[in-house]
Design a binder for these strands. Structure first.
Length: 568
DNA sequence: CGAATTTGACCCGCGC
DNA sequence: GCGCGGGTCAAATTCG
């Protein structure tokens, strides 16, 4: 069936969260929509009962479908025509309820809750059929009892509906609260970063003053500038004008990078989109341009160096991530029989983003795509998911890889440090690689019985703690959605990655609900505080939230920066 | 015919 | 200093 169902199964403990009334704080407009879903869902639920697990929708549309189904059936609960059917569907329980009678509300509620765990929106057409069947069989049973049963059921459903509505209300409040918290946090971050920026400017002015007084050759530079990678595309026009021979002389240890920039000057490599610059040149430039955007440029420079590696199973030669790429080279990498292809983004003339695509040596069904740099142009919707994901990952990585002082001062790093311990189930971070690299492993296939871990080649840099990484992955029971990603059609990947971040917040609690059946975070009525606790305790929620915030931070940085802002 | 890809050559960084 | 490997360039080739 191609209705957005993932086809993957969940343990029954997660089922409860599928209930859109608990998850979805919205869309009452769709409450009565799509009557077809009722009949459609019959099959699903019946199949679900037969099979070992339950299906859940990965796509939002899928979620909505289920929501419609559930809601529709609830609505149908108000509809007398359909109610008896549902009664019969749960006939094994209903009869008990019926005998206990209405005054035994506690018992009834327990039964009711049990049933809720199974999915309240079970299907009316099935039940209707069942009813008709049963009515044919049970002709002897008095219609009076049946009416009574129907009324009981109706009351029960109405009760349930009220309960759901209240829960919905609670969730809405929760959402409001979370979003308020988020807004205030964001404001706080922005103010922090502005303060930091101010501080950097002051430092720069101070250093320039010192420079003017002391020997001009001894450039005193704040440490953070020294530690930075090359400045991101300086713009083709302004490229080499500053790097005179005096600069090179002054910079002392003239490196090969300088020779490269000489070549650029000599016209050998004019077509280069990025001007390779020495550290000293960079420092020089930074010092020369004491513009307010210095800090942002520095961040971008580091960003340019950071890499995000995505491992995914794909038979296609390249995962389609929504961007346009031009292949500019191919090399045989050592230790891998598969060639490595080099692509650069062609959506804008001077977009610095590049990516490498290579198949994993150990498992050639795994495609390793390594992204480097930030887009300097608007992205099509299809590319936003991947771009924001990689940017967020890179942000987390970079904020974590900064020097200790800066890292501690960097608000992003606070997030990263809060996030990384739990996001290791999805991301591996490498500080020892030539470039800081974060690896998003979307394959999560069990390691070959006797071979090395499949993630070992791409995440090679991180392999000093690779074992730990894997144990983390296993211990945390990698989200089933990720497992589902392993065999996605290539075009679906970016969407799913982005979706995953989104879904992580939506399905928070689902994936980590533990083994106990029907005890997911919302299976029982909770106070808002309980719910918040459950949400914030969930690593996925934290990770997703951090990814979003991190992405936003990057965005705000870029907006504060100069002309060539990134759009991620 | 223009755009995209291929591929050999070149350059650079790094380890020995 | 030399060799190796990674990364990039650009002419040649292929493709639409």
């Amino acid at each position: 069936m191609d209705r957005g169902w993932s086809g993957l199964t969940l343990d029954s403990s997660s089922l409860d969260l599928i209930n859109p009334n608990r998850l979805n704080h919205s869309n009452h407009g769709r409450f009565f929509s799509n009557p077809l879903t009722m009949s459609r869902n019959v099959d699903d639920d019946e199949k679900t009962k037969v099979s070992t697990g339950f299906r859940f929708p990965v796509s939002l549309s899928g979620i909505r479908d289920r929501e419609d189904d559930d809601l529709s059936s609830e609505v149908a609960g108000d509809n007398d025509r359909e109610v008896p059917g549902e009664v019969d569907f749960f006939s094994d329980k209903k009869s008990r309820v019926c005998h206990v009678d209405v005054d035994e509300t506690r018992v009834k509620k327990e039964e009711h809750d049990d049933r809720t765990d199974v999915n309240t929106g079970l299907n009316l057409r099935t039940t209707g059929n069942t009813r008709s069947d049963e009515s044919m069989i049970d002709d002897g049973v008095s219609s009076e009892i049946e009416d009574k049963r129907a009324k009981n059921e109706l009351a029960q459903l109405q009760d349930e509906l009220k309960k759901m509505t209240m829960e919905n209300q609670q969730l809405k409040e929760l959402l409001t609260q979370v979003s308020n918290n988020y807004t205030s946090l964001q404001m706080h971050l922005v103010s922090l970063m502005q303060q930091q920026q101010q501080q950097h400017q002051n430092n720069i002015h101070h250093n320039k003053a010192i420079e003017a007084v002391e020997k001009p050759e001894e450039t005193i530079v704040p440490r953070q500038f020294i530690d930075l990678g090359p400045l991101r595309a300086v713009g083709e026009g302004e490229e080499v004008s500053n790097s005179s021979s005096e600069d090179r002389t002054r910079s002392g240890g003239s490196s090969a990078a300088e020779r490269r920039s000489n070549e650029v000057r000599d016209g050998k490599r004019v077509g280069r989109e990025e001007s390779p610059e020495t550290e000293s040149n960079k420092v020089q430039k930074v010092n020369n341009t004491s513009s307010p955007a210095t800090f942002e440029q520095s961040a971008e420079a580091t960003m340019r160096k950071a890499r995000v590696s995505v491992r995914a199973r794909s038979e296609a030669p390249m995962i389609s991530d929504g961007c346009q790429w031009r292949k500019y080279g191919q090399k045989m990498a050592k230790g891998n029989p598969c060639p490595r292809a080099y692509y650069r983004c062609t959506m804008a003339t001077a977009c610095p983003v590049r990516k490498q695509v290579q198949r994993c040596a150990e498992d050639r069904s795994i495609l390793i795509t390594t992204y480097e740099g930030n887009h300097n142009h608007p992205l099509p919707p299809a590319a936003v998911a991947m771009a924001s994901t990689t940017t967020a990952a890179a942000n987390m990585l970079l904020s974590g890889s900064m020097s200790s002082h800066d890292g501690m001062m960097n608000p992003t790093n606070l997030l990263a440090r809060a996030v990384l311990p739990c996001s290791t189930s999805m991301a591996t971070i490498s500080a020892s690689a030539p470039f800081p690299t974060v690896t998003l492993d979307l394959t999560h296939s069990p390691p070959p019985p006797n071979g090395p871990n499949p993630s070992s080649s791409a995440a090679a840099a991180s392999n000093n703690n690779n074992q730990n990484h894997n144990s983390l992955m296993q211990r945390s029971q990698l989200p089933q959605q990720q497992q589902q990603m392993t065999n996605l059609p290539p075009g679906m990947l970016p969407q799913v990655i982005g979706q995953a971040l989104y879904n992580q917040s939506k399905f928070s609690g689902l994936q980590f609900s533990g083994g106990s059946p029907s005890v997911a975070a919302f299976s029982q009525p909770h106070t808002v505080a309980d719910t918040i606790t459950a949400l914030t305790a969930d690593p996925n929620f934290t990770a997703a939230l951090a990814a979003v915030i991190s992405s936003m931070i990057n965005g705000s940085n870029q907006h504060n920066g100069e002309g060539n802002n990134k759009n991620q």
